[in-house]
């Protein structure tokens, strides 16, 4: 009796995704919206905490936007290699980005131009606010792909 060789299916982890990178698009949108709101946030901080508050808000917003861009770049890079790599980069990228944010904040915390409260509040509020803003448009376009919000509606 002869046995026919069985072709083994490739492991899930070895599969790669060579399609377009939606993370980059989402991150670009987030940065665009962040830059739109940033002058208002900086002006409000300047009114409440003076120049140090404004600088702290700008610094924190820059960190949040850079974090989004770095996350998107890492994920889209990893997805082109393999899904296993995507998993690894997601987890280690999380640790790496947290460490970078912590390092950047701890590095400047004793500088005279830093106000801790606006810096901390901006880190959380900018991150969550931008995400909620973006989610609104992403969920709309996922539910009704033909009805993407136009540029004016954004």
């Amino acid at each position: 009796m002869t046995t026919t060789p069985v072709r083994q299916a490739p492991s899930i982890m070895a599969v790669r995704d060579l399609g377009p990178a939606p993370e980059r698009e989402v991150a670009r949108d987030l940065v665009k919206r962040g830059l739109m709101v940033l002058p208002i946030a900086v002006a409000l901080a300047a009114l409440s905490w003076g120049g140090a508050g404004a600088a702290s808000v700008a610094f924190a917003a820059g960190l949040v936007l850079a974090n989004f861009l770095l996350a998107a770049a890492l994920l889209s890079w990893a997805a082109r290699i393999s899904l296993g790599m995507l998993m690894g980069v997601s987890l280690f990228g999380f640790v790496l980005r947290l460490a970078l944010i912590a390092g950047a904040v701890l590095l400047v915390k004793d500088q005279p131009w830093v106000e801790p409260v606006p810096l901390g509040v901006t880190l959380v509020v900018a991150h969550l606010g931008l995400l909620f803003w973006e989610t609104k448009f992403v969920s709309a376009s996922l539910a009704f792909p033909g009805l993407k919000p136009s540029a004016e509606e954004r």
Binding site: E23, F94, K109, H127
Partner: peptide
């Protein structure tokens, strides 16, 4: 459906990461 999954995954990761950021901000303040 990889594009849709990756979009929601990216947003999910960012939302979950907000929890860690809140932890860091509490530590910092």
């Amino acid at each position: 459906s990889a594009g849709m999954v990756r979009t929601t995954m990216f947003l999910g990761i960012a939302f979950v990461e907000a929890l860690a950021l809140i932890g860091f901000v509490v530590f910092f303040l």
